[in-house]
């Protein structure tokens, strides 16, 4: 079983696919799950404090907007922990979306900087045919990482 960082990190579909094929998805939900400070498990996400952007200084300098640093405090450690990553470019809003384009640039850069990290970097499908190919590519990539599929 590999730990696979997913982008968009909020994508439940992608998260589900990774887990169906026997791996652990590292995304927004992962970070949030470890930080529950709300009344319910499904309360709105991210109970962050002003300390988080300071933790994000490990990944981005102080002149970088605080929102980027706060997000990096969440995603930076996940990228460091990942055994692999899947990046879906130009994903539709309904597939999962990230709030900050500047954070996205930094996340992509960090993933590319991790030498030897297996990365599937593909475009979001626009047609049915592209959709089938999209799922196949993800399945093939995940199978190549080992682990057990539940289908």
């Amino acid at each position: 079983m590999a730990k696979v960082f997913i982008f968009p990190a909020t994508s439940l579909i992608l998260s589900d696919m990774v887990e169906r094929w026997g791996h652990e998805a590292l995304g927004a939900a992962t970070g949030i799950r470890e930080r529950i400070q709300t009344a319910s498990l499904d309360s709105p996400p991210l109970q962050m404090t002003p300390e988080d952007p300071k933790k994000g200084l490990k990944y981005a300098a102080v002149e970088v907007p605080c929102g980027v640093r706060g997000r990096m405090a969440l995603y930076g450690p996940l990228i460091e922990e990942a055994d692999a990553a899947i990046i879906i470019n130009d994903a539709d809003l309904s597939f999962g979306c990230m709030g900050c384009a500047r954070t996205n640039e930094l996340v992509m850069f960090m993933i590319r900087q991790r030498k030897g990290l297996p990365v599937l970097d593909i475009k979001y499908p626009e047609t049915d045919d592209e959709g089938f190919a999209f799922v196949s590519q993800i399945k093939e990539f995940l199978a190549g990482l080992g682990g057990e599929s539940d289908d």
Binding site: D52, P53, R71
Partner: peptide
């Protein structure tokens, strides 16, 4: 807005 939650200032 953009970023207040991740900056810890929404509260």
């Amino acid at each position: 807005s953009c970023g207040p939650e991740h900056s810890g200032v929404q509260k």
